[in-house]
Simulated scan of single mutants.
Amino acid sequence: MIEKLGVDRHPRIVVIGGGTGLSVMLRGLKEKPLDITAIVTVADDGGSSGILRSELQIPPPGDIRNVLMALADVEPLLTEMLQYRFNSGTGLAGHSLGNLMLAAMTDIAGDFVTGVRELSRVLAVRGRVLPAAGQAIVLHAEMEDGSIISGESNIPKAGMKIKRVFIEPEKVEPLQEAVEAVRDADAILIGPGSLYTSIIPNLLVPKLAESIVQSNAVKLFVCNVMTQPGETDNYSVGDHLRAIHDHIGEHLFDYVIVNNGEIPPQVQAKYAEEGAKAVHLDLEEVESRGYKVIADRLVLFRTYLRHDAARLSHHIYQLVEGWMKRKG
């Protein structure tokens, strides 16, 4: 396949985000001949990550752990063990073994970034996993009524419409490796994930956002399949894109990848109980703003709806392959 691209290397793709959706997608992408760098949010402050962040003064490990597991080339049993969450034990309950290992590796290696790098080596990770910044950031949201909610885990619980989010410290420095990865990328992929609490926080890291805007890479946005209660209630695809544009002030993407597969009524009813519904594709609106739309049946349903990692990765690789060919 690399010969078809007319280059002597794998295409370099930078994937930016956080949360479960990113990990699902990466499991498909790692099977493609791609040089992957995942840049992961450091705004999480809930659960095990929040406790370790507060007590050990390290960036939150949870999203990093999920991405490491998605890209790891290890036996399934080891992956299951590292994702294992203790449900009893004073001080242990709620923590995952992988989070504790990341905390331990940070102490051994001397800093979080080196700890992630060393654990990546141990787990034979296919690609690189980088935090968006070398320190934890605090996420704040200004709501439509003017009130301010602080803390990533508190924002969706507020039950109010989000006007904007912002980070503290405002001028946090991104990892230089992350900036260089963006600068050298053939493709930059953002999403899927929680719009205001997993995706946009990465784009608020100033120099990281600037490097994305300035990059000549093809830029892709993978839209969520369902709305998220307390965060993107009633949002269409166009609303997701508008929120990113409003925060960055730039037209960021060349392509938008969306699901247009039918979601069974019983599944929709299950999500409706939680206040979520399918993200509406307002195709004319999105195309009128200059985005090219790739729409396909991209969902699987087990306990929850998830992106079809194999099908999604196929579309992404084809887009990157076509871009590389056009570049010559």
Rank of each mutant, 00 (worst) to 15 (best):
I244T: 09
A243E: 06
I13T: 15
V205Y: 12
G134N: 15
A269D: 15
E144Q: 14
H245Y: 15
G146H: 11
A217Y: 10
G322N: 14
R117D: 14
E142Q: 15
K292Y: 11
H140G: 00
E262H: 05
V237I: 14
D63M: 09
V40Q: 12
G91A: 09
G151S: 03
L220F: 09
I316W: 05
K325P: 00
Y196Q: 04
G328E: 13
A158Y: 06
R9L: 01
T90A: 14
E262V: 14
A136E: 01
L220V: 15
V125G: 05
R126V: 04
P265K: 14
E173W: 01
V299Q: 12
H245M: 06
F221K: 04
V225Q: 02
V320W: 06
E250G: 00
H240M: 05
G115S: 10
S96G: 02
P265N: 13
P33S: 13
R85Y: 01
D63W: 06
H251I: 01
Y271Q: 07
F301S: 03
F301I: 04
R311K: 15
N224R: 11
K4A: 12
Q318W: 10
Y84D: 02
F86N: 07
T106A: 14
I190M: 07
E231M: 10
K277F: 03
E55R: 15
I148C: 01
L319I: 15
A217N: 05
P76F: 08
R242T: 13
I58S: 08
H251F: 04
V165L: 11
V172F: 02
R12A: 13
V172W: 00
T227P: 01
G127V: 04
I155M: 09
S211V: 11
L26W: 11
S96C: 10
E284R: 14
K32F: 03
I162T: 08
Y304T: 12
W323K: 13
D186L: 04
I212K: 07
A187W: 02
A133Y: 02
T41I: 10
S150P: 00
A93Y: 01
L26D: 06
H314R: 14
L71N: 08
K157A: 12
V256Q: 08
D111I: 11
K4L: 14
I16Q: 06
L100N: 07
P59I: 09
D145C: 06
G110S: 08
A310Y: 03
G46P: 02
Q135N: 06
I58A: 09
I36L: 15
A43K: 05
Y255K: 11
A178I: 10
I316K: 03
I294Q: 13
G261Q: 09
I257E: 04
T106K: 08
V293Y: 05
S48E: 08
M101G: 01
T227N: 08
I137R: 01
T303A: 07
D8A: 13
R326K: 15
T232K: 07
A141I: 08
L241W: 03
P169A: 13
R297Y: 07
A310P: 00
P11D: 13
V299S: 11
A278P: 11
I13W: 03
L26A: 04
D296G: 10
L119D: 05
V138I: 04
L71W: 05
G249Y: 08
G322P: 00
V42Q: 07
D296N: 14
V213N: 02
D44R: 03
R12N: 13
R53L: 06
R306G: 00
